[in-house]
Design a binder for these strands. Structure first.
Lengths: 154, 154
DNA sequence: GCAAAGTAGATGCAATGGCATATATATGCA
DNA sequence: TGCATATATATGCCATTGCATCTACTTTGC
């Protein structure tokens, strides 16, 4: 059953999802930019690489974790490499593959960005949500939207 | 008091906000694209114009409603005009201003897009939220993020 | 009434993203 | 083995966005 007509509440949730994210993301990016830091996408990639420990990640893994298109990963990694934040080496099990790993400069950037980033999250998200329970509720609901097979019954 | 350290729940809410919006927006845009329709931004502008009735809107008003940068409004309106979906005329109270209004082609596009758009919202948002109360709760929480002066006490 | 400052919108340029396609390697199967 | 197909990543081209600046008109202060 298609259920092609969403309720008013669903439409409003959708509209606000787009608007809230847009607004908050812009504000956070602006704070980072003002402090002289690169865009959030760089942070995200570096963080994923740091979590992967020394092993490094394949483009495919970065793509899946960050929901990026393949060609964008390729070019984002280019930029990071050009800035000395990551290194590429060929994946030995697969001659087609690249194994991308974070450099010490990359780790350093992560460390230096975090205080600014953290403060931006607190200001633009934490401060707007009165209580801790609201943050938890929001995280849970958004989790459902991300989840491949949530609800769907109704 | 700066409160520069957000709780884990806030950080998670932030991370999921970005991820959920990204994922859902992509999916909705893909559905529209697959059906041969222009990007959502066009719909948003046209919808704002239709709501403004015959009077039309200034660039400034579009900018504020859609959270767009000024120069982007200028070019987005260019594209819409080129496609015969909107008309510009000088604002008579202010010689610098443009008054943008929707054409009948524009109205027609809105009508034709809605069924596809609506179905996409139902599929990518409605279906993931089990109950109506969840949609309402999500809309309310996201509303707080958009609200200029929400909470802030804590 | 006019110069100075302000505001609305446009535009050149560089960076980024999307789409299609190219290149290199890997795998499957006759 | 060897060719057809699949997979991983790169790249050319065009559209869109961001940033800075430009132009045209308006308002303010004298």
């Amino acid at each position: 059953m298609p259920e092609s007509t969403p309720s008013e509440a669903v439409i409003q949730a959708w509209a606000r999802l787009v608007k809230a994210q847009h607004k908050v993301l812009r504000a956070v990016e602006a704070d980072l930019n003002k402090a002289g830091f690169p865009p959030l996408a760089w942070y995200d990639v570096l963080l994923a690489l740091r979590r992967a420990q020394g092993k490094g990640l394949r483009h495919l893994e970065i793509e899946a974790q960050l929901l990026l298109a393949q060609h964008n990963v390729s070019r984002l990694v280019d930029r990071l490499e050009k800035n000395g934040l990551v290194e590429r080496r060929r994946a030995m099990e697969d001659g087609r593959g690249q194994l991308v790993s974070i450099t010490s400069n990359g780790r350093d950037l992560l460390r230096r960005m975090w205080p600014t980033y953290r403060a931006a999250i607190a200001r633009h998200v934490g401060r707007k949500l009165g209580a801790e329970t609201q943050a938890k509720a929001l995280a849970a609901l958004l989790g459902q939207l991300i989840d491949e097979n949530a609800a769907s019954s109704s």
